[in-house]
């Protein structure tokens, strides 16, 4: 299966290991992975700041890079959701997948050669969870499901623990993290407090932006807890 890897800009620049793990994992699972090298940003930072009118350039560049692909796969719930909801091309909107949903829904992965013998706290990133419906949500009266937990269950040695408030937002929120700095940090600190109470060694999520925010707080606190994008764990042999 031919797959185009969509690497969000901040992952490209600051978290290349997440893109590397995505690439390796997809290849391990038998995909022919193409990385369009002129890709930049999906336009989400501008759009969520009220400047969707300024994203034409990003949309056009995204189209140029990803036009011919039936499967555009990215390791970021919020960027994928943005493309899915707002990209002008219907073909692209229908072809873009967050990597977990691609693994469970398209590749239908039922086993993985992955091992991660640690106690891991699961952070539900909102755009993946509520936007892309990667898992059921606490607000709704619906049957529990989680594509994320299903994938983590395939990893050897891992122990996944949920915080008390299973799906509260971490407070990143794009430019919210700086324009509403006080609330943003407080929300992140509160999430971390719950993960700390569970004595986890890692916090795992499907959105590197949430993890970047929590990592910033953890490091300022001098914590030993680390953050990992889910693909880093699924690709961890």
């Amino acid at each position: 299966m031919r797959v185009a890897l969509f690497v969000p800009c901040y992952i490209d620049q600051f978290y290349p290991q997440v893109a590397v793990a995505s690439l390796e994992l997809l290849e391990k699972l038998g995909c022919e992975v193409v990385v369009p090298t002129d890709q930049t940003c999906c336009g989400q930072p501008m759009a969520n700041s009220g400047f969707a009118s300024s994203t034409e350039g990003c949309d056009a560049n995204f189209s140029q890079n990803f036009e011919g692909f039936d499967y555009i796969v990215g390791p970021s719930g919020s960027c994928v959701l943005h493309v899915k909801e707002h990209h002008p091309s219907e073909k692209i909107r229908n072809s873009v997948y967050e990597i977990c949903e691609f693994l469970t829904d398209v590749l239908k992965v039922s086993s993985l050669n992955a091992h991660f013998p640690h106690r891991v706290g699961l952070h539900q990133s909102c755009h993946g969870q509520r936007g892309l419906q990667l898992s059921s949500m606490s607000e709704r009266n619906e049957k529990h499901f989680s594509k994320i937990e299903d994938l983590l269950a395939l990893v050897g040695g891992i122990e996944v623990v949920l915080p008390v408030r299973v799906d509260e937002c971490c407070g990143f929120g794009g430019t919210f993290c700086v324009t509403e700095e006080a609330v943003s940090v407080k929300m992140g600190q509160d999430r971390i407090k719950e993960h700390n109470a569970n004595a986890v060694s890692y916090i795992v999520g499907v959105d590197t932006s949430c993890l970047m925010h929590m990592e910033g707080i953890l490091r300022r606190q001098g914590s030993k807890v680390q953050v990992k994008h889910i693909v880093e764990i699924l690709n961890h042999a």
Binding site: V7, V20, E181
Partner: peptide, 23 residues
């Protein structure tokens, strides 16, 4: 002056971007 840095560390910048590594 950077609101991010007030209560959070900045991400550690890697030597190479993913694109540089990939090329």
């Amino acid at each position: 002056l950077n609101p991010w840095y007030k209560q959070r560390e900045m991400p550690v910048a890697p030597q190479e971007s993913f694109q540089e590594w990939y090329n």
